[in-house]
């Protein structure tokens, strides 16, 4: 079962932007907010060469890796064609302006 943990306020993430969540166990999580105020959480490592996806440009429900321009679907973590690969996703939601991450 999910244990929802409050992370930050929605307004702490810029629209079409992201923040990094550092875990004590290592392995950063990138949390994204799009223009419709949907939030997404992905392992902050591109499937290609481990680029920090949190630093990419967010558009629609996608993010572009800053290192070599791979595109990922924020919902599924799948790379978009022609590239092949995927990143781990995490459950995340917003309640009363509070962003909650499942850990």
């Amino acid at each position: 079962m999910h244990h929802w943990k409050p992370i930050c306020l929605l307004e702490d993430i810029p629209p079409l932007g992201s923040r990094i969540v550092q875990r004590p166990s290592g392995g950063d999580i990138a949390i994204f907010r799009n223009a419709e105020d949907e939030v997404f959480a992905l392992h902050d490592q591109c499937a290609h060469k481990n680029g920090p996806l949190s630093q990419g440009i967010v558009h629609g429900r996608k993010v572009t890796c800053p290192l070599h321009g791979w595109h990922f679907n924020l919902e599924t973590g799948q790379a978009l064609a022609p590239d092949v690969g995927s990143c781990a996703t995490f459950a995340i939601k917003v309640e009363h302006g509070q962003v909650l991450l499942a850990v």
């Binding site: 629209p15 481990n50 920090p52 800053p66």
Partner: peptide, 19 residues
Amino acid sequence: DPQSRFINERAHANIQKDG
């Protein structure tokens, strides 16, 4: 609009291969 800029221009520094 910073979110319309590549990370280098948002962070005013040049991203390297290890982030």
